[in-house]
Design a protein around this nucleic acid. Structure first.
Lengths: 243, 243
DNA sequence: GCAATCCACAATAAACTGCGACATAGAGGC
DNA sequence: GCCTCTATGTCGCAGTTTATTGTGGATTGC
């Protein structure tokens, strides 16, 4: 059963900015309901207008685009706290699809309410923009990875990316992440073939940097992977707004 | 010398939404000045905080990221009407750099004024978000191209992209675009080597689909290129806001 | 005025290789 | 016993790397 924003478990995480009492109250009005879906459920569909926006409360999913001939590009992995459907809300149509990979719990907002948010809650509107701009930032990183990095660098990069996000969200139990995705999903994220992803992954496993079997992912040496992927250690973990 | 927003030549273009009298007045207050820069001038720098935001009035440029070892990923080509620096304005730091490729004229806004925009002009705040969400949309397209398309498909895709944008902005004179970029820039956009870009481009020229010499670009058969790149003909040209 | 010298870019060639395509096998899971 | 996913091996090619050459523009020198 739905809970009040006041009790939202996400709010407690360090990654997210604190809410003022006023904001909590507003969000409780803004929240239109909750939605639970199972693995494989399409949440938003590329090219469609959606009357709803979502914040992920729990569970994992995928954002992806497909070309006409079936090739698929995974945009990124969807994790708790992610805000879904903004493109459709302001632009008109979604540029990609979103699909659940596990059971997911979503907080639902009405597209039609978005305007009142801008009108009456400039601070929250600002946060929405913040989120959009930050997402743009990450897509730029992805572009650079896919465009410039070699297969092994890309995989290292991708794993670090997933691992740090999961860490921020307190998703690591026993230093292990329950990771419902297939190698094919990672391959489609990084623009690599499945086979080559598998083989490259094997190298990282041999070197003892990663362990990934049976839907359980462990990154054993983050720094080695970061070095391998030429990543900026400097990426500061800033708090981010939660819708 | 600077002109008032009322006389802004961009506003007249069909691609941009009409301004209400009220909006024009507000923008004239929001506008902090104008800036003219020459080719090669860095406008925004990755990782830096910029106290300013810009709208491109004229001229072309590049957005790009660089890895530590010098590899460069061009995020996209900057054209008139583009809004620059939002990431730094709301997030804190730029995720990429922006550099002029020709003489450019920029409309300058103060970062510190952005908040009053959200506070007092929800419609304009909404537009800012619209722009951010749309940019995210385009980056998703780029990801799919670089991740999934073959070299020739990518180049076809890239050229169509440039060509349509330029067309919308009325940049085509005699069906020709003055295009200040080098093949290297296109290569870095598409994640290809310079040599392979050159060869693949040559194929498109042979087939009579494109002509590009001496900084003049002509796309002779857009539809053939679109087909080759498996592009959605459906991408509707919607009006977009101008900041 | 016109060589002489750079320099930035395009063009093309030749050799190498990272990654994809295809094939097959094994390991759960329903 | 089928289906999905991981694992590995072999082979070939798309795309990279490393040249070399040509061209027009800009700068210098006399």
């Amino acid at each position: 059963m739905p809970f009040a924003c006041h009790d939202c478990p996400l709010r407690r995480l360090d990654v997210f900015e604190e809410f003022s009492e006023d904001e909590v109250r507003f969000m409780e009005g803004f929240k239109a309901g909750e939605l639970e879906v199972g693995p494989g459920t399409p949440i938003l569909v590329e090219g469609a207008r959606s009357p709803q926006l979502f914040t992920v409360l729990s569970g994992l999913g995928l954002r992806y685009k497909t070309l006409e001939d079936g090739r698929r590009q995974v945009i990124n992995f969807v994790m708790p706290g992610d805000f879904l459907g903004l493109q459709a809300a302001v632009g008109g149509e979604m540029g990609h699809s979103v699909e659940a990979a596990t059971d997911m719990r979503l907080c639902v907002f009405r597209r039609s309410d978005i305007w009142t948010l801008f009108k009456n809650h400039p601070d929250r509107a600002y946060d929405v923009t913040w989120i959009a701009a930050t997402e743009e930032h990450f897509l730029g990183e992805s572009l650079a990875s896919i465009g410039q990095r070699s297969a092994i660098e890309r995989i290292a990069w991708g794993l670090v990316q997933i691992w740090t996000r999961a860490g921020d969200l307190d998703l690591l139990k026993n230093d292990t992440l329950l990771f419902p995705f297939r190698q094919q999903d990672l391959a489609d994220t990084l623009g690599l073939s499945l086979v080559h992803t598998n083989k490259t992954l094997a190298k990282l496993k041999e070197r003892g940097l990663v362990a990934w079997t049976d839907r359980r992912l462990r990154v054993l040496d983050v720094e080695a992977l970061e070095r391998m992927a030429l990543m900026d250690r400097s990426e500061i973990h800033r708090k981010r707004p939660l819708m």
